[in-house]
Design a protein around this nucleic acid. Structure first.
Lengths: 388, 388
DNA sequence: GACATTACTTGACAGCGGCAATTAATGCCG
DNA sequence: CGGCATTAATTGCCGCTGTCAAGTAATGTC
């Protein structure tokens, strides 16, 4: 971290309440005029002017002279913008068999990316691999490596982001692993640890479709089914670290036993693994998810039925979520969404059949996420932890 | 409202952020020492001393000389207490066939109560009745009537508490009724309108079992099944006014049609009405809920089965709620809870079968609520709107 | 070129809350 | 019984923050 980057970090960290709200607004809405920042944050124009000045001086924000003459009377606005390259953030997504890492600018646009296969899920192996990919990214960035200002790491499971401890991760087979501290010992930048779905939620809230919404949920479909929830401007984490377990709502046939041991979980019938199993059983041979997708597209009745059942369950689960928490928007994301055409109609029908009253006005959008997008979410989490 | 009461109201309203946090702490935790207030709120001791002084001067808070000598070294604490009778609040619960109103002190203890049957659900009839019961309470209070400082009104449905509009209430058959304004025109005290379950939630959070919890939910069982949700210190209202509709989660047999028109709603099998219907159908004659309870206690297999199915569904619904939002505590309340012994075992079993991981550590408590308790909730909502 | 209009800046100012020193009220111990 | 340690509450000072109101800047319009 060079001198400039360090100075910027301390400036953001030591900002007053109003100061960080102004920075957050510029970060997520730039270009934006000072008067709009005032309206957005509820501050006076004077406070905005004062808060913007040090940000410009530090090179975090660009204040070009007014240029845009729109024909209306009065002094034209001179919007300020975030300097995207003022800081570089690294986001790391830990999967059970692979590490995916990206270096991004302040809007989580990818500058460089790296992957590394994992030979074991042992914490030390994972830490080694993370350090390797980070070093590789540093090399790939060249001169801009000095602008690196933070590292975000996203892991599935019950993660305490305030202490940096992975309290429990079924997928990794971890319990009480102080991953944040262990990484911090070897890295010169602040390390932020987050639950992966939360990180994705933060990313969508600040830099994605969730921008500007007061409350929204994100449902991820893939090997597992999870969800992240943003209500009243904050992520819902659960008193005991568990929340958003939409994959384990008991909406499916009780005869189905989920890998978690419970009966009737949504995940037991709607995850990619469950669809594979259902189609394989029907056809009497092992079928991969790609094959199942192809079969369904070709009109195979068994594959079609499996996808429809999955879609019906996910739609019902979303209606359940919406009836309970009433978000403004639900984003359906994750890797599994690339074949969303197979789900769409049935999912919407199931949602509408069960959504209650005005809650049905909740918009439902799909956004396919690649594994790289998960790493970008980790980067977003690192940015947020810097600002807040 | 006499001079003292008006002065107290303006004092509370104009208090700074720290000031109102201090008042809130004294209100909910009194007696409490100044140093504990500082710890609780995160403020300095100095700030607490300064904030307490005007409250004592206004007669809202009592600061008796230290008396309690507990044998430990050091200056003994001299706790301050809320002056319960400094203000009187009126809480009104609107049911479809009856108005229930209470006058309470600042801890929502009932000072006087009134009821009035409703001949129609027409808004004007309801307003007339509310004005009548309020006048009757004023009379019953005698001299303390001058301490009345606010009126809270609780109505089931989609209520916008910021504008005082009942956007939609199925039970009352209302849509877009500006009940708050209409009442305000005839009443000299500030009127607060709230959704009934939210009001009950506010009451439990400030003056009940929910005190001190960071997040909790309240599930009410009765003619309907509803829930209120407190996460991150705020009530979840839903972007479109709908949230906590636990009674309309699609967990029951899809063959069952709910009065709301949807299929498989929890309420369609677990409300008191649904239990009556199930037992009546099994026995081939009309059975009231009281009879059904008696039959179940006497060991009648049909009645027993109906209660068990209801308990199973409610337990599953609570697990669903907990898996999604992870609260610290769930309170089961409402009128239907008085016969909770019929539910308890099955409900807990169903909850534990479906609660995911650490979320199962969520405590579940029962608290029977009378109709008067709903009115007390309305009073709590009025108190809260005064402070915030 | 005066004027209206809108955006932004500046400096005075008030309020809030923290800091640190002070005062208050006890128990303990020689 | 009188210092002394200990904890609670108070007080004055001070810096920071953000608002207010007035002023300045940059445009279009007549």
């Amino acid at each position: 971290m060079d001198h400039d980057t360090a100075a910027r970090t301390t400036l953001i960290r030591s900002a007053s309440d109003a100061g960080s709200r102004v920075f957050e607004t510029i970060l997520t809405r730039s270009p934006i005029s000072r008067i709009d920042i005032a309206r957005q944050t509820g501050l006076s124009q004077a406070a905005v002017t004062k808060a913007v000045a040090p940000l410009v001086a530090a090179g975090l924000v660009d204040a070009p002279p007014a240029s845009q003459r729109d024909g209306t009377p009065g002094r034209p606005v001179s919007p300020v913008s975030i300097v995207l390259e003022a800081m570089v953030m690294i986001g790391v997504k830990v999967n059970v068999d692979e590490i995916i890492a990206v270096a991004t600018d302040l809007a989580t646009a990818v500058l460089a990316s790296e992957r590394r296969a994992l030979e074991s899920d042992d914490p030390h192996t994972v830490i080694e691999a993370i350090l390797e990919v980070v070093a590789a990214l540093e090399l790939a960035l060249g001169a801009s490596a000095s602008a690196i200002a933070g590292v975000g790491v996203a892991v599935s499971g019950d993660v305490d982001s305030s202490t940096g401890i992975v309290r429990e991760s079924n997928i990794m087979g971890w319990a009480d692993v102080p991953l944040g501290d262990l990484l911090q010992q070897h890295l010169p930048w602040p390390v932020t640890l987050e639950n992966d779905v939360h990180a994705l939620t933060i990313g969508e809230h600040w830099f994605g479709v969730g921008l500007g919404t007061a409350s929204f949920a994100i449902v991820t479909i893939g090997r597992g089914i999870g969800s992240g929830l943003h209500l009243n401007g904050e992520v819902v984490t659960g008193a005991y670290g568990v929340a958003g377990e939409i994959g384990h709502l008991p909406l499916a046939d009780p005869a189905l036993v989920c890998p978690c041991g419970r009966r009737g979980c949504v995940e037991a019938a709607a995850s990619t693994g469950a669809i594979e199993a259902a189609v394989s059983a029907a056809l009497g041979r092992t079928v991969t998810i790609d094959e199942a997708v192809a079969l369904a597209h070709a009109g195979d009745p068994d594959a079609d039925a499996a996808f429809r059942e999955a879609a019906r369950l996910i739609g019902t689960a979303i209606a359940t979520l919406v009836n309970l928490t009433g978000p403004e928007l639900v984003i359906i994301g994750g890797e599994g969404v690339s074949d969303f055409d197979l789900f769409e109609k049935t999912l919407h029908d199931a949602f509408e059949a069960h959504a209650f009253g005005a809650a049905a006005r909740c918009r439902i959008l799909t956004r396919p996420h690649t594994f790289e997008d998960w790493a970008r979410g980790a980067s977003a989490a690192a940015i947020q932890s810097l600002v807040r």
